[in-house]
Simulated assay, not measured.
Amino acid sequence: MKHPYLTKDHEAFRKSLRKFLVKEAAPFYEKWEEDRLIPRSFWEKLAAQGYLCPTLPEEYGGFEADWGYAVIINEELERIGSGLVGVGLHNDIVIPYIESYGTEEQKKRWLPKCVSSEIITAIAMTEPGAGSDLANIKTTAVLEGDHYIVNGSKTFITNGIHSDLVIVAVKTDPHAKPAHKGVSLIAVERDHPGFSRGRKLNKVGLHCQDTAELFFEDCRVPKENLIGDEGKGFLYLMEKLQQERLLVAIAAQVAAEDMFEMTMDYIQERKAFGQSISKFQHIQFEMVEMKTEIEIGRTFLDSLIAEHIEGEDIVTKVSMSKYWHTDMAKSVSQRCLQLHGGYGYMEEYKIARRFRDIPVSAIYAGTNEIMKTIIAKNIGL
């Protein structure tokens, strides 16, 4: 299906990226899954080809590419595997906070290194006791002289092991009323005293993506590392979550398309009762139903991407997309695994990995239940 926001230049870029990933990612992905880590050398290869932060202005090392290029990067990475989600997080979730709210000094200090892979980024919102309830995080940052003293912990942090720069949601005013006005964003660098990483978390899926716990014990962070203004962190998070949730929907859509394609190949090759199982009416109906949902999903998603590129406020629609697309992908993963029969449960079949990787998409970037709460409020309920 032709995406309405892409040109011939975009498609040429996709071909080049796909060729790169076929050579540099696909042959090694299963090894990365076994190692529970994508090597830093892959990030360096991405940077060398211009695939890190291409939408940044040229003065910071980017190409000033439009967001259609970011969509292509995220789609093609997802076709290889969901464990590459950390690249999209770096490019399109963390970097926008620095680009939009950072000082000129911060941009010049960090952004060129984010393009070159010298700096890998993460964003730390979730805590052991606070996930969706961001206004009531417990990690604090108290200003003492020229430094903030940060205390607390974060968990489930994507790029938690590799990250050199972490945007941390903290409470600079624990007594603020309402609570969200006490939230600020601070950039913590790898070498700051008092900053440490816990274990690399052993997840059900996304095995090669490094997810970790982060700890801050009297961590001294220069006050110059405050992102934007004190007390506006919650507002910044709400402004940027639209793009983050759209990225989750894009990944879910691509995963569903990939699972459908691999299942179509399987059912045409697999024989039972003297014929291809694709000839059985029940299986045909299953495939037809999934294909219909996937086509509907792609049409809705492409319209949202086009609106987002135009700068429109699509918070309500993105919330719909995030929950609907991830639920759709979960359903497709279950149905496709079933159609693979016993082979679907074998690790050497990609559908087994997809089946493990998909469920968390309904949880991160705001649970699907939170999405429905947002939608309910925005339609006047």
Rank of each mutant, 00 (worst) to 15 (best):
L165P: 02
P178K: 09
V170N: 01
V166F: 12
I161Q: 14
K177R: 14
E118Q: 10
I157Q: 02
T158Q: 07
G131W: 14
S116W: 05
G152L: 10
S116V: 03
K154W: 11
S153N: 08
P178Y: 11
A130P: 01
G182Q: 03
L134H: 14
G129A: 08
A130L: 06
S153L: 10
A130V: 08
H175F: 15
I120R: 02
T126Q: 12
A179Y: 12
G145C: 03
I157L: 09
E118H: 09
K107L: 09
I120F: 08
N151I: 07
V142P: 07
I119W: 06
D146E: 15
D164Q: 00
K177Y: 12
A130S: 09
H180L: 10
F156W: 15
A141C: 07
K138I: 15
T155E: 11
P128A: 01
F156M: 14
T126I: 12
T126Y: 12
A176I: 01
A141D: 04
H175L: 13
G129H: 13
P174H: 05
P112S: 00
P112A: 00
E105N: 08
L111R: 03
T121K: 03
V115F: 06
E127M: 06
K171P: 05
A124E: 04
A176L: 06
G129R: 12
T158A: 09
K177A: 09
V115P: 00
T155S: 11
E144T: 01
S163L: 08
S153E: 13
S153G: 05
Y148W: 12
E144M: 03
N159K: 02
E144H: 03
G129I: 13
I157W: 06
N159E: 02
E105K: 12
